[in-house]
Nucleic acid binder design. Structure first.
Length: 285
DNA sequence: TTGTGTTTTATTGCCTCC
DNA sequence: GGAGGCAATAAAACACAA
């Protein structure tokens, strides 16, 4: 066990006058609203709890360290306990403190800080998951756009062929049927120009705002930091990311499903279906 | 050795819950 | 109102490059 010294400010412990009883050395300020510098000049370290009120000691010792690093054994045990349960009930706190030779307050502080570190890490992990899903979606979006362009040019060339044929065949042999070219630009533009828009914002569901031309991603991380009750079990307050619960589309799909829809999906769904044009793609990431 | 960035321990203030 | 949680912050301790 490390034999470091502890500088301890009893005024800062919410009224708990914490005297250090473990096997670490202790310094006691025992006074409120005193700066660290001021205090350390006046209240140097005690080498044992017995010396706590030994006024002579003040004159002999000089302040050295003001913070105590826990030993690796202490940290190990704390980590083990944190893994089991990241919150401390009072009883466990007391037991653990006894075991470690620390003040319950120190154990509580350690858990508090540990939770904060865990949360930071979790946010980083969530960000990574979200980003990779977004990247995947973006590349899918690009390939869809290319495919779309290809199909558009196919339609154009087929129309040209149709018109050529119409000119070649005498009018009376057309059985009174007029051949219209497939609409491409004006009429079909809304269908072809697959601008990815928030599928959920139009029509019956949701109201998310998405960058024009940017795909939208909905992601859930299993161990996400974000509490389900606050963020609908989703990643949380990430811009332009919408949870399933928020959008009301509780369809049982994993949030890792990435949704891409053409802007016309809602308003032209029926028309699209009739034409066989509308596309609705799920990408399972 | 020293300057600098990171990690760890601890404090403070505010908030919520009982 | 007290206890406990969290965010923000301070400051010591540590790591490491120059």
């Amino acid at each position: 066990m490390e034999s470091g010294r502890i500088f301890f400010d009893a005024s800062a412990s919410r009224g708990n006058n914490m005297l250090f009883l473990g096997n670490t050395e202790l310094a006691f300020r025992g006074r409120s609203m005193m700066s660290m510098e001021e205090a350390s000049k006046r209240r140097p370290f005690f080498t044992s709890p017995d010396e706590l009120y030994d006024e002579e000691y003040y004159d002999k010792q000089s302040p050295e360290k003001k913070k105590h690093r826990l030993s690796s054994e202490q940290v190990h045990l704390l980590e083990k306990n944190f893994e089991e349960e990241n919150k401390l009930e009072p009883e466990r706190k007391t037991q653990l403190a006894k075991k470690l030779g620390l003040q319950p307050r120190q154990v509580a502080v350690w858990f508090q800080n540990r939770r904060a570190r865990w949360k930071t890490k979790q946010l980083e992990r969530d960000y990574d998951v979200l980003k990779s899903s977004y990247d995947t979606l973006l590349s899918s979006y690009d390939s869809i756009m290319k495919e779309n362009e290809k199909l558009k040019s196919e339609v154009v060339s087929l129309n040209e062929k149709l018109q050529v044929q119409a000119k070649e065949v005498p009018e009376e042999t057309l059985c009174d049927k007029k051949v219209d070219p497939l609409p491409v630009d004006e009429d079909m533009a809304p269908i072809f120009s697959t601008r990815v828009e928030d599928h959920l914002s139009s029509g019956s569901v949701g109201s998310a705002v998405v960058d024009e031309g940017s795909p939208q991603v909905v992601v859930d991380s299993v161990d996400s930091y974000f509490p389900a009750d606050n963020y609908g079990g989703c990643m949380g307050p990430v811009e332009r990311v919408q949870s399933e619960q928020e959008d009301g589309s509780d369809d049982g799909r994993s949030y890792l499903d990435v949704f891409v829809a053409s802007e016309t999906e809602n308003q032209n769904h029926e028309e699209g279906e009739a034409l066989g044009w509308w596309t609705n793609m799920y990408y399972v990431g």
